[in-house]
């Protein structure tokens, strides 16, 4: 596992390896990785989300990268399928994104 990436694991056990920079779009993940007294997540470089399903986590990862681009000036639409909206919203609240 490289230094500047982090592994995000969904409820079903799917693993998403994303850049730390992208993952830190989520304030919650940022805190997990930067909190001073090394938590388990900081040591292993992986975070398990037992309450987030794979498609949602995938969408979230896509969002991380989109958000980075958006904030650097590339203004495109981020498409969200209506059927996952609610779940996605709740995950967003949880991740403070």
């Amino acid at each position: 596992m490289k230094e500047d990436t982090v592994k995000l694991i969904s409820a079903e056990g799917f693993e998403f390896v994303v850049d730390k920079k992208a993952a830190m779009v989520s304030q919650t993940i940022r805190n997990m990785l930067t909190s001073p007294g090394s938590f388990a997540e900081t040591e292993h470089g992986e975070v398990t989300f037992p309450e987030i399903s794979t498609p949602i986590l995938e969408k979230i990862c896509q969002y991380f990268y989109w958000s980075l681009q958006f904030s650097s000036g590339k203004e495109t639409e981020f498409h969200i399928e209506p059927e996952i909206t609610l779940e996605l919203m709740m995950a967003a609240n949880y991740l403070h994104t």
């Binding site: 805190n31 909190s35 090394s38 938590f39 388990a40 997540e41 975070v47």
Partner: peptide, 9 residues
Amino acid sequence: HNASGLSFE
């Protein structure tokens, strides 16, 4: 000082 076993998540 025993935090390393804890899961932040």
